[in-house]
Design a protein around this nucleic acid. Structure first.
Lengths: 98, 98
DNA sequence: TAAATAGTTCAATATATTTTGAACTATAAA
DNA sequence: TTTATAGTTCAAAATATATTGAACTATTTA
């Protein structure tokens, strides 16, 4: 039987994931998202952790392309949330999958 | 009761660990070390994955300071091995510990 | 001793990542 | 319909990482 295709949004690699995780700003974003534990607008996160919107935009995009967050655009705002699947697949099981 | 001190070799942080893991050369080193599953000299790893000794030296040092490998110097050679503890603490349990 | 081997250090270069502000798009509110 | 808000894009600048070769230390072998 054919392997189930990961409905990959343009291919996430192990390195993309670790690179995304190796920045203090992005770690703060992730912590914030885990704490709130529900969709939040980028702007809310950004002001909570005190970064410019430009910088926020950069970091959210990077987290998204690493598959660590999913985003939904509603009108003016972009709501983001953690994507557990990627953490499970690339982080928690990293060693075993090596 | 006082917390047990992590006999830390000059403090490993979450970010150091992820930074160390977000490079293709270092991932190859780690894969090699996991496969061999016992002490190996840096030179052996280096030639297996085809990198210069200077580059090897750089990457092994970085992996070491991130606590991902431990090293033992015997005469001319430096034997390295993976340090499971760091993987467990900072990688496998990353999400839970956030 | 001389030559070879394993690794480190250094400074230079190359490359990648992050931050910034200005200009932009799209939606919402006055 | 102007003004405000949320977010993006761009190019420039700042900063951080990685690669290189030459010179080095220490150990081993001839």
């Amino acid at each position: 039987m054919k392997e189930k295709e990961e409905s990959r949004s343009s291919e996430v690699t192990q390195i993309m994931v670790f690179k995304a995780l190796s920045d203090p700003v992005r770690l703060q974003i992730i912590q914030y998202l885990k704490r709130t534990n529900h969709e939040v607008a980028c702007g809310e996160v950004g002001s909570a952790i005190n970064i410019s919107k430009t910088s926020g935009s950069y970091h959210f995009k990077l987290l998204q392309s690493a598959g660590l967050i999913t985003a939904r655009k509603e009108a003016r705002e972009k709501y983001v949330t953690l994507n557990r699947q990627t953490f499970d697949k690339f982080v928690s099981n990293f060693y075993e999958n090596l």
